[in-house]
Each structure stands twice: as C-alpha cells, then as structure tokens.
Design a protein around this nucleic acid. Structure first.
Lengths: 146, 146
DNA sequence: TAGAATCCTTATCGGGATGATAGGATAATA
DNA sequence: TATTATCCTATCATCCCGATAAGGATTCTA
C-alpha cells in the first residue's frame, strides 16, 4: 500500500517547476540537481505527464519544461492518477476487466470502495498551490483538509 | 498503491470465522473451500494473525481456528496493519529508520502525512461486525462512515 | 554553420516483493 | 494407532520497481 517513487518524484518535479515558474522553461537537469534525483529517471516520469495537457516543453538549447496551467489547477489526485495508473486500493475497483467474480456477494467490496473514495477525496482536494502556500507559511493551517 | 492479497485474504478469512463463530473451531480447509483460496497460502497468512491475540487455535482432529474476541473488537485497520506491516502510503512515515534526509524541508511530507491519517481513520472506523451487519442488511446505511 | 544544450526514445538489468506450491513435523482426537 | 488438523520451512515463477545507459532528434547561440 505504497505510493511509488514515480508518483512521489512527479509531484516534487511539478512543485519544482511551479516554484521556478518565473524563470520560463526549466531544464530537467536543474530539477534533477535540485531534487537530488537521477535526470534519466525523471525523464521517464515526465514523459507520462507530457502526454497530458499538464506541461509545455521546448527542445534544444535553453529548452525545458514549464507548467501549462496555474499551480492551483493541478490536484495531487490528477498527478498521481497519471503516474500510478489509478488510485484504487484494490484491482477490482479499477474497471470491469479487473472486477472479480465474487463482486455480487463480496463482503469486503464496499470496504474497499469506501477506502477508494476517502483517498480520492483527500488527494483531489489538494492542489500544487496549496502545497506551496503551506510550505511558505501563508494563510493555510497545520493540516490539509481532512 | 494496492492492498496486497495477504490483507484482502486475511479480512475475508476473519469474516468467515466470524460468520461461523457458533460452530466452534473452524478448520482452514473449510475456510479455504468456502473462500476459494489455496489452503496452504491461507496458512501462511493466518500465521501472521496467530502471533497476535486475535485467534484461538487447537491442533489435531476437530481442531481449527476461532476468533479470540468479538467481531466488533477487530477493526479493518488492525488486521491490515498486521498483514501489510503498516498502513503508511510512503516509507518515510513508517519510522525514523525510513525517514529520509529531506524531511526537514520536504514540501510533500505533509501531504503524505495527511493521506496516512485519512486512510487510518477510515480503516480504524470499521469493525468486522460493521461489515457483517451491512452485508446482512441490518441497520447500517449504504456507506461506511467516511 | 558548428557545436552545445536539451528533449526524446528505447533497451536493459538487478533486486525484491508477491503469490503461490509442496511436503514433512507435530499434536489432538476418536 | 489411524486420522485429521495445525505448524513450519523451503522453494519457485513472475512481475514490477527503481534505475542506468546510450544514442537520436531538435533547437538555440556564437
């Protein structure tokens, strides 16, 4: 029951881009150095995000990545759904293909459904901007909305 | 971000024992057949639970397992913590050994802390009895408390 | 126009966890 | 003492995770 490094690194990467928004396009090399993560590995992860509308990129010298939208328009849920594939805590919640035969009389299915909802509600309620604000001690309290 | 089969099977196993509470000691063979899970595999899983105070067992003919406490005294959180090791969504929440160096200035740590809380609150709020009640359509509504 | 910087793509790999199978030792009952 | 269980340990195939590596494509700048 763990968020993979893919998801954790993706979040840190986008936060890094958000913090350096004013610098225009930011190279992965810079992000990798600041975050202490292998650049090659970050490339694989950012490829997942690039295939959505989350990022703008330019190649070549002075190229790099930047957020396509405002930090408050990215929820942690959005980001993790892309890197993790989905946020379901058990496979049978993902789709009909993964739904097991027992679903009609499964005692535990509703437990997992509820768990999935709780997780999604929480992660969809936090944006990059929320994280930045809290980190810089602006107007947000001690906890994210739980 | 998945609950392993260990955890899912453990929950089903305990629910099965709860449903057959009146029959005294229940053999794993019976549970395995009813649940459609390999008996050998269930043995490994129940070993984890047996090392706590959750179960009574007797060996030999007519032997088997039974719950040591009332169904309402087992939370899903308790059960999963044993089979999964812990419920933390990231390793750095588990203990100091796993805490990473970045913890003092990590932007994302609080996001994971909050996620961990949300998950634990939910899972600790559901007992075996709650699941049985809901399954048999007694007095519980459509949802577990979220 | 050369070359430096950067994104882009694919191949590969070690290691560990997962999910399971198998079989024998031990204990209780009839 | 035969049977029925739990108990215990070894083994295994598979998959995914996390990472490394290398080279190609593209764009900017001097």
């Amino acid at each position: 029951m763990k968020i993979s490094t893919k998801g954790r690194y993706a979040l840190r990467m986008l936060l890094d881009l958000a913090e350096h928004e004013d610098e225009g396009y930011v190279s992965l090399k810079d992000v990798a150095e600041r975050q202490g993560i292998s650049k090659n590995y970050l490339e694989q992860i950012i490829t997942l995000l690039k295939n959505t509308d989350m990022l703008k990129t330019t190649r070549g010298s002075q190229g790099g990545y930047k957020l396509a939208k405002l930090p408050e328009q990215y929820t942690v849920g959005d980001i993790l759904r892309i890197t993790e594939g989905n946020l379901a805590p058990v496979a049978c919640l993902v789709d009909d293909v993964n739904m097991c035969q027992r679903n009609l009389f499964c005692m535990t299915l509703d437990v997992w459904r509820g768990l999935g909802k709780v997780i999604e509600n929480y992660l969809d309620g936090i944006t990059l901007q929320d994280i930045l604000d809290k980190y810089h001690n602006r107007d947000v309290g001690d906890q994210y909305y739980i």
